[in-house]
Simulated assay, not measured.
Amino acid sequence: MTGDRIFNVLFLCTGNSARSIMAEAILNRAGAGRFQAYSAGSTPRGEIHSYAADFLRNQNYALDSLRSKSWEEFSAPGAPAMDFVFTVCDDAAKETCPVWPGQPMTAHWGVPDPAAVEGSEAEKRFAFADTFRMLNTRIEIFVNLPLQRLDKLALQKRLDDIAGATKTPENA
C-alpha cells in the first residue's frame, strides 16, 4: 500500500443507520483527503437514526452525502474497489454482520449498537456519544498508520489490534 492514492474504505453494519454512518463521517473528515469512506448495511433501515444525525450535526458534520444503503451497492458493477472493509457491528448473538468477499484488508471493529439502548433520552443520547467516541478513537489510530511502510501481514495485525483500542477492562 504505497503512493499518494486515495484509499477506499467501507464500514459495514446491519442497519446502516448509526455506527457505520458515524464511521463514514468520521473517516471522511479525519482522513484529510487520503481516504474515501463509505458505509452500508446488510439490512439497511433506509434512514439515518435521528440521534446519530443529531449528534453528527452537533459536531459540525455535514449530513448531505450520508444515507442508509445496502452493501450490495458496493458489489455491483462500477462500484468503487475497496481497499479496506471494517465491520462495526457488535458481537451480540442476535445481530448479523455481513461478510465482505474479495481482496480488501478487513477487520472487525465491533461496537455496541446505540440504537438498541433502552432508558431515558439522556441515556440513549449518551450511547450515541460513546459510540462516536469509540469509532473516532479507532479511526484516528487508523489514519495515522504508516500504510506505506507496512507489509500486508503487519498491516492486518495493526487493523485487528485497533479493535481493542477502546475496550475497558470490563469488556476486554
Rank of each mutant, 00 (worst) to 15 (best):
G102K: 11
N16Y: 11
W100N: 06
E123Y: 10
A40Y: 07
G46W: 11
E95Y: 03
G110A: 07
E95I: 15
E24Y: 01
C97Q: 01
E140R: 08
R67V: 00
V88Q: 01
S120A: 10
G33C: 06
A25W: 04
G78S: 12
A30I: 00
E118H: 05
T131V: 10
A76S: 15
V111M: 11
R45P: 00
P169S: 08
E170W: 07
A107I: 08
K69E: 09
N60Q: 14
P101W: 05
F86E: 01
D151M: 04
P44C: 13
E72D: 14
A154Y: 03
A40C: 12
K157N: 13
P101G: 09
C97Y: 04
F74P: 06
N60F: 03
R158K: 15
A92D: 10
I48R: 03
A129R: 07
A79M: 12
A79E: 11
D130W: 10
F55M: 12
I21W: 02
F11E: 01
F7G: 00
L10W: 05
D83M: 06
Y61C: 06
R57D: 01
L56C: 02
P169N: 08
R158V: 03
K157D: 14
N8C: 06
P44Y: 10
P98F: 09
E123N: 05
G46N: 09
I141Q: 07
T168S: 14
N16I: 09
L147S: 01
T106A: 12
R138L: 04
F132M: 05
V111C: 12
D90W: 05
G41A: 10
W71K: 09
N16P: 06
H49I: 04
E121C: 00
S50E: 15
D113H: 09
A122W: 06
A115T: 10
D151L: 05
K167D: 12
H49E: 11
L10N: 05
L12Q: 05
A23K: 02
A40N: 09
V85R: 01
F86N: 01
F142L: 15
T166Y: 15
R57E: 06
D161M: 09
D54Q: 15
P44T: 13
S42V: 13
K157R: 15
T96I: 09
R158T: 06
G15K: 04
C89Q: 01
E47L: 12
I6S: 00
A53F: 04
D64H: 13
A23T: 04
S75A: 15
E121P: 00
G110N: 03
L150P: 04
D113A: 08
A25E: 02
C97R: 04
A163V: 00
L147V: 03
H108W: 14
H108I: 08
L66F: 12
L155G: 02
D113N: 08
G41F: 09
G15W: 02
E95C: 11
R149E: 15
M22R: 04
D54I: 01
R125D: 07
K157P: 01
H108F: 08
A52P: 07
I6V: 15
V143W: 09
A163M: 05
T87I: 06
L147K: 00
L27G: 06
K152E: 13
G78M: 08
T106R: 14
A53E: 10
N136S: 14
K124S: 05
W109D: 07
Y38A: 02
K167L: 15
E121Q: 11
L56T: 04
F84N: 03
A107M: 10
G15I: 01
